[in-house]
Each structure stands twice: as C-alpha cells, then as structure tokens.
Amino acid sequence: MLRRLVVTAAASLASVAALGAGLPATAHAEAAPLPLPTLLAAPDHLTVTVSGSERRIDGTYRLDCSPAGGTHPDPEAACRRLDQLTAERRDPFAPVPADAMCTQQYGGSTTARVTGRWQGHAVDTTYSRTNGCEIARWNAMVPVLPAPGRAR
C-alpha cells in the first residue's frame, strides 16, 4: 500500500512538472511549478545564541528567512548576508579546516551557537573568537552574529 502511494505521488509530481515545462514563452514566471526540492524543503530558520560577552549582546535570537523575520535585531540584513555567502558558493556554517594555519590572537570570550535549517540542511555549529581563523569566520557572519566592538 505504501509503495502504491509513493508511486502515485511521484507520477502526480512528474505530471505537474511536465505541464509546467510546456508553458508558452509568454506565461508569467509565477505560473511555473516550483522545483521539487523547493516544494519539499523546510523553511529556513535559525536560532542564534550568543554568550560570554562582556557587552550586552548575550541572548537567543530566532532568524527566519524567506520571508525575513523572527526576533533577530536585523533579520533582513542577516538573511541577505546568508544569501550572499551561499551565492558565492561559500558554506556559511563550515568550520575552520583542521589544517588551517591561524594567527594566535585572541578576540574575546564571546561564543555563538547557530542551530536550525538553512536551504534544506540541518545546521548546528559554534563560533568563537579564539584565534585569527575563528575571528575571520565570525566576522564573515556579521550581521547574523553581532559585530565585534558594538553592542546591539
């Protein structure tokens, strides 16, 4: 029974896609069906938790994208930054490579944890400012993460 349901659903989706592919050139883009991954993807939302700062930036913020919203102080700018990094084919949540050579500078005790979903992928990563590589990784995520030296 489950197999029949799956086959029927797949055939239905294929039919809808085939109909959308045959749209005339004058049809509006909005009329075309969404690609299957877009239909099945969970909405983009992240939880950003900042702690250990000596300024008043500690807290937990929810960031929703598409459309931008949540409790984040600047959701539009944060979503634009994530979209920009993704368009540049950079994983905004990738850790510093294990073999990276990093300067031994200390940017403070502030840490951040980001969890949730981004473009259909689960996110669970942490950020710190413990060396030059981690500071650069943090700075690349501003305004998703708070800018150094500035309270929000």
Rank of each mutant, 00 (worst) to 15 (best):
S109E: 10
A122T: 14
I57T: 15
T115I: 05
T126L: 01
G132D: 07
A100R: 10
T60D: 07
Y61V: 05
P143V: 06
L34C: 01
H45F: 00
P73H: 13
L2N: 12
P75G: 04
P143H: 11
G120M: 01
P97N: 06
T60L: 06
N139Y: 00
P95M: 14
G20K: 03
A42W: 15
A9L: 12
T125K: 07
A147Y: 09
V144A: 08
T38Y: 06
L36Q: 08
T110H: 04
G120P: 00
Y127T: 06
D91S: 08
S128H: 07
T110R: 14
V114W: 03
Y61C: 06
T60H: 09
A42Y: 14
M101R: 14
P24M: 10
A78V: 04
P146Q: 15
E76N: 10
A10S: 10
L19I: 09
S15K: 14
A147N: 13
A136Q: 13
V114R: 03
C79H: 09
H121L: 13
V16A: 09
T111P: 00
T71W: 09
R55D: 03
L85D: 03
D44T: 10
E30H: 07
M1Y: 09
H121R: 15
S53G: 08
L39A: 00
R80H: 15
R81N: 09
